[in-house]
Amino acid sequence: MTGKEYTSLYRKSKDKAYDALFAAYCDYVYAIVYNKLRSTASREDIEECVSDIFADVFFGYDTESDHEGDMKGYIGTVAKRRAINAFHSLTARKGRIADDAEEELVNMGSDTDIEADSDKAETRSILIKKISELGEPDSTIILQKYYYDRSSSEIAKLLSMKASAVRMRAARALEKLRVKLADDGIRL
C-alpha cells in the first residue's frame, strides 16, 4: 500500500483506512515483533506490541503527504523500534539477568561478533532453504509449529486439516529437516 493510497482512503473514511492498512501489514508487523520478542514475551505481550505499533502508525503517519512509495519501510522501522523497546522493558522487568542473556554471554565472543553474525546469517539461510525444500504444506507446518509455537490444533484450523494429520506431518517433516541439515553440518 502506498502512502498516497492510504491518505486517499483516509480522507474518505479514517476507519476504512485503518482497516486496510492493518490488513496489508499485520502479518509483516507480527513477524517483526515475534522475531524480536519470541523468547522474551508471551503471546499476549506480542499482540500488545503489535497493536501499539499500529496505534503509533495510525496516530503518527502524516496524512497530509501524498507519498508515492510503499509504506512498508516506514511501518517496518516503527515496528522494529517498538519491538526493541518492548524487549528491553520486558527483560528489565523480569530481573537483572534473564536465563537466555546468560547463555548469550557465555556464547558471546567479544572480538568475533562480526564473524559470528556472519555465521549465524549463513546458517539461517541454509535453514530457510532446507525448510522450503520440504514443500507445502510441510514447510509452513514446520515454521508454524517450531518457530511460531502454534499448537497442532491451531495449525489445523489455519490450514483446514485435521490436528492428527498436522502432528504426523510435523513430526515427519522435522525428522526430514534434521537429516537435510545434518548433511550441512547443522544440528537442530
Binding site: 502479518d27 509483516y28 507480527y30 513477524a31 517483526i32 515475534y34 522475531n35 524480536k36 519470541r38 523468547s39 517496518g76 537466555d100 549465524k120 546469517a121 546458517t123 539461517r124 539461510s125 535453514l127 530457510i128 509452513t140 514446520i142 515454521l143 508454524q144 509449529k145 517450531y146 518457530y147 511460531y148 509455537d149 502454534r150 489455519l158 490450514l159 522435522l174 537442530l188
Partner: peptide
C-alpha cells in the same frame, strides 16, 4: 524455546519470508 530459535533476531529478508507464513 522450540527448535528453530536460530531464526530469532534475523535479518530483514528472513523476517519478510517469515511474514509470509500464515499464522
Amino acid at each position: 524455546k522450540s527448535d528453530l530459535n536460530m531464526l530469532e533476531n534475523a535479518d530483514d529478508k528472513t523476517v519478510e519470508l517469515l511474514s509470509g507464513v500464515p499464522v
